[in-house]
């Protein structure tokens, strides 16, 4: 208890944040686990809803073997990597989109008088095993699509798959926090920031060749969603970049993830400072 009052290093603080997160999430899971049948059914329902996107892609490919130059297996690979990264980020941080509600209803104050970051408190709120249903469709799809990609699996390509999943999750995580931070200032922005979170998730399920060039530039450089899976996937699939970006951008996702998180952290702190100076 006393160690919290002295300023610990960044690593120690990070470890502590993660352990606090896990403790709180676990407490919520245990509370939810009192109704196991209900939870299982709801997880199935969540999986079903999440699977609709796959069904949509399957309908498209029932009509044509290639879309914008990409085969069904390739698009499903993009879907799987995007949806898995997004689902994990959603499980971990998705409830932060309720920040505006907490501000409007004054419940944020109750979070601020506790010795844990309000970000962790909001992110773990209502943490339920039900959410894990969301990762079922992308995991199944990846298991089916990866063997059908027909690429030569060099060690670099093999290593790239987990790396892109991790960086994609980090990028989406940063986007969640960034969108939440905006709500400190613009209380009604939630409806619009969904375009970045859920919209970003849908966008990255398709090859960028589907979209107009300027649109792709926007999601590459402004909101770097193209680094969630598109750039690394080009490397895995051995394809040229339609935007002709230099080769190293295929490997830039981890760095982009770090930058997005840094921006999100600054935005969150700024938002919290704004709230604490203006109240509600």
């Amino acid at each position: 208890m006393a160690s919290a009052d002295t300023a610990p290093g960044i690593a120690a603080r990070g470890t502590r944040a993660v352990s606090t997160y896990c403790l709180l999430a676990w407490t919520w899971i245990r509370a939810a686990a009192q109704y196991p049948v209900s939870i299982t059914l709801l997880a199935l329902g969540t999986a079903l809803t999440a699977g609709l996107d796959v069904a949509g892609i399957m309908v498209l490919f029932s009509r044509t073997p290639r879309i914008a130059g990409f085969s069904a297996a390739e698009v499903l690979f993009l879907y799987g990597t995007s949806a898995l990264a997004f689902s994990v980020s959603d499980i971990l941080l998705g409830t932060t989109e309720r920040l505006g509600e907490h501000v409007r209803e004054g419940t944020l104050d109750a979070l601020l008088v506790r010795p844990v970051s309000p970000l962790i408190q909001i992110a773990t709120e209502d943490f339920t095993p039900r959410r894990f249903g969301r990762i079922v469709p992308p995991v199944l799809v990846l298991a089916l699509a990866i063997p059908r990609l027909g690429v030569a699996w060099t060690p670099g390509r093999v290593a790239m798959v987990p790396l892109m999943l991790a960086s994609g999750t980090v990028i989406f995580g940063g986007v969640w926090v960034l969108c939440a931070a905006v709500q400190f200032v613009l209380l009604n922005s939630h409806g619009a920031t969904k375009a970045l979170t859920y919209g970003g998730a849908t966008l990255t399920q398709y090859p960028m060749t589907v979209f107009a060039r300027d649109f792709v530039r926007g999601v590459t450089f402004v909101v770097p969603l193209a680094f969630v899976n598109w750039e690394p996937a080009l490397y895995v699939l051995g394809r040229p970049d339609p935007l002709n970006l230099p080769g190293w951008t295929r490997f830039a996702s981890p760095v982009v993830g770090a930058v997005v998180c840094a921006v999100a952290a600054v935005a969150w702190r700024g938002g919290l400072r704004h709230y604490r100076s203006t109240g509600n």
Binding site: G191, A192, T193, Y198
Partner: peptide, 8 residues
């Protein structure tokens, strides 16, 4: 709020 939804 509705306009924000319209953006999405």
């Amino acid at each position: 709020g509705s306009m924000a939804e319209a953006v999405t």
